[in-house]
Amino acid sequence: MADVRQGLVARVVSVDEEAPESRRFQEMGLTPGTRFRVLKVAPLGDPIEIELRGFRLVLRKGEAGFIRIEPEEAARV
């Protein structure tokens, strides 16, 4: 998750359950298998805005580092 770019569509592969934040990220909808799209990267490079489960969420790339993702398609921007 630490390295994503605008327009990326990806799926959550797994979440490191050991990470202290993992529970909250899952409660916010980022459970394994969830598909999401990166809508925007903030002007200063971080945080990012993603769309998942019909809503939009802002998160910091570094803080979501424990989430493993798999790109689905490199969508056009």
Binding site: R24, L57, V58, R60, E63
Partner: peptide, 11 residues
């Protein structure tokens, strides 16, 4: 206390 991750909804 622990700093919480920054998770914010854009309504």
């Amino acid at each position: 206390g622990r700093s919480l991750p920054f998770l914010m909804e854009l309504p």
